[in-house]
Amino acid sequence: MAMAALRREGRRFLLSPVSYNTSGAARSAIPSDEFGSIGARSISTQVVRNRMKSVKNIQKITKAMKMVAASKLRAVQVRTENSRGFWQPFTALLGDTPSVDVKKNVIVSITSDKGLCGGINSQSVRVSKALYKLTSGPEKETKYVILGEKGKVQMVRDSKNSIEMNITEVQKNPLNYTQVSVLADDILKNVEYDALRIVYNKFHSVVSFIPTISTILSPEAVEKESEAGGKLGELDNYEIEGGETKAEVLQNLTEFQFSCVLFNAVLENGCSELGARMSAMDSSSRNAGEMLDRLTLTYNRTRQASITTELTEIISGASALTG
């Protein structure tokens, strides 16, 4: 409360006619030389009025974007929550082993194609880079597969030599499993891997997203890990029906697991993107509103000042005549 009062005081001080040239809102917008000297009539109200108009338009746009994101979010959220049933059985069967140490790592980082959605893209890029550092070492190879335009732009800057491939325009149609599985198929055919690590933002609520890593092991790596025991060691307890060998079953299983986990990851990230965009647009509309308030104040004060000056001049002129 006290802070707010203080801030208001500060703003009033900034906007007081004594210091037009440093007024917070107007300084960035209007070249200071357009204001004349203190209290003079040459202060241009036109510039402030134009600025107010443009801020108002921006506010309208951000409000509309927030509405769009909010209405899309609800449908996507339901689908995302349903899609969690895809990976849960796999985790129950194979476990999740993020700490596994293998030679060929492929980091699949999922980002969005469009911007204006807060920090979710830089967050998954940051996690991917940290993962790269963790998994790289002598005789090891780590590659990136990047989904989304924004992640690519950030990765190109310092790790373009490790990028294996990138995929865009995934979200042109509403996401569906067929699309993601074709995509997963293309990734599997084009990279060699011992472990695939998918980095994405898991949707938690409209304002919170958790950067998450899902690990998918190649059939050989699963074999190796299951010999070492642990959760994967229990695989030998299962009886395999039909004429397939364990290796074949494991290969089918890995491929299917990858497409399912990728489907969920893409949905989760899309959902987080919408949530992040919603809150980002909400705060920018609020900021635009605050800016508009400040500009209105400046505008009115300037107008009042010029009226007062004119009145003073008329009165003093009249009194000089009569006196």
Partner: peptide, 18 residues
């Protein structure tokens, strides 16, 4: 059938160039 639509662009990278 609407759930079967596939659309994406994929590009491979070689020597740091797409």
């Amino acid at each position: 059938a609407a759930r079967e639509k596939v659309h994406f662009a994929i590009s491979k990278w070689a020597n740091g160039k797409p």
